[in-house]
Nucleic acid binder design. Structure first.
Lengths: 246, 246
DNA sequence: ACAAAATTAAAACGAACGTTTAATTTAAAT
DNA sequence: ATTTAAATTAAACGTTCGTTTTAATTTTGT
């Protein structure tokens, strides 16, 4: 039984053809909207092959996510390691933390001549779904978010927990929507031709989010004094962290 | 045949009970994931009532969206009218435009003791979906986005089309994700207790997006000169606009 | 009150779903 | 070459889906 990876084969296996097809069909019609028959037809394989190779439709979904999320989040953490090492004991620049957070994602999106485009569309689609489907891949983000949340807190040591919390979520929101927009540039109104440059998008992203996060604290426009106390949570940087509950 | 609105009835009609139930079921399980039987069971009405009152499941979906999007977007445009009138011939403050863009949405989210919570969850979920479901309510946003895109261009007259385009989409991304986060505060890690204040969230939002949009142009960190030419598109403010293609 | 229209109810329709079974073919091992 | 396991196939399983049909009931207008 060699159902794993099956590398060192120059001919694409049935398992891989199912994964590739599932990625596209899922991205186009959603997890619930795609039938196993849709996928096996697109892959040119037999209907029962999904049950045989992945056990069930749910098993296939998990496999689709794992194939991409593992390498992608590993790359993000590696970049963060680099940023923290370079910063030493002082707070890392918020721009660098943001860069480590989003550049691998955008790069993965555009890698190999858009080969990962379908998966990223699927991701940006599923991240707004209820726990049912989210649970299938949430564990891929637990350790990642723990590390990055600590890094953001370090980079902005005077921000309150709420300012960090919302700043991080604003950033995540932009990232998801950016992936969505990058996948649908052709069909969006008001889209100038030069908007597709990935490098430029990443830099726009960092410029936007870095100043946005900073603006939440103190020097904000603060309509009526709501950006109140500087309740900074002292926290040693570059600490090793452990998984958190839920 | 009085299938419309059916107001002036102190007893909730079958039609309205279906709409209320559909909102919650759709939000929890998605449009494809919810069956007509799920909805009619939750509403305590007969299965055939959906076909009778709305023609089809698709008709029901459209009705669910129209009931909320109409008033909500009307409120946003009314606020924008106010902002533009107050600005006269000079560019309106970007903060005011952003406020008109998002405050009615957040307020609608929290109106009537969270009665609209389910719908907003449904919205933030569907906005990342492919054209199939998007087409059902996209027309609700066409005129709105046309007006606001012009307003953003006016408020930031030196920004290039690309800077406006991405700034608007970054803002939309934050808004969607914020609605999602507001609906799931209980289940999110790193969430401080004081994060639920809607007024504070709106002001954080505006502080973040206003400085973010400004930062994209000129005074940005601009890693390697990509935030280039000031290709401002001269455009008279407060102009009346007409619907745009696609 | 009565007739017409609107609404609800129960049952059934064909189609598509995820999954399983059993038979067959392909590949590897001895 | 023979044997054994892995991989693929075609067919069918039972369930649930959206929708329709037919009849009974309630509401409305005169």
């Amino acid at each position: 039984m060699m159902t794993e990876t099956s590398s060192a084969k120059h001919k694409q296996t049935t398992r891989d053809r199912i994964l590739d097809a599932a990625e596209h069909v899922f991205a186009d019609k959603g997890l619930d909207g795609s039938s196993v028959r849709d996928i096996t037809t697109a892959a040119g394989v037999n209907l029962a092959a999904v049950s045989y190779h992945f056990g069930s439709k749910t098993g296939l979904i998990e496999a689709v996510f794992s194939r991409h999320l593992g390498p992608m989040n590993t790359a993000r953490l590696a970049l963060l390691d680099q940023v923290e090492e370079q910063a030493g004991e002082s707070p890392p620049p918020i721009e660098s933390v943001l860069d480590a957070f989003i550049r691998p994602v955008v790069m993965h999106h555009l890698a190999e001549h858009g080969a990962n485009d379908a998966f990223m569309r699927l991701m940006s689609r599923c991240l707004n779904e209820p726990p049912t489907h989210l649970e299938l891949f949430k564990h891929h983000f637990d350790a990642l978010m723990h590390r990055f949340h600590a890094a953001f807190s370090c980079a902005l040591p005077n921000h309150s927990p709420s300012e960090i919390f919302w700043g991080v979520h604003f950033t995540i929101g932009i990232m998801h929507h950016t992936l969505h927009v990058l996948s649908h540039l052709d069909h969006l109104p008001f889209c100038p031709a030069e908007s597709a440059d990935a490098q430029a998008v990443v830099e726009r992203f960092i410029a936007y989010t870095a100043t946005g996060m900073k603006a939440q604290h103190g020097n904000s426009i603060s309509v009526n004094g709501l950006c109140g106390g500087t309740i900074s949570t002292p926290q040693s940087c570059n600490q090793s962290v452990e998984p958190f509950p839920s």
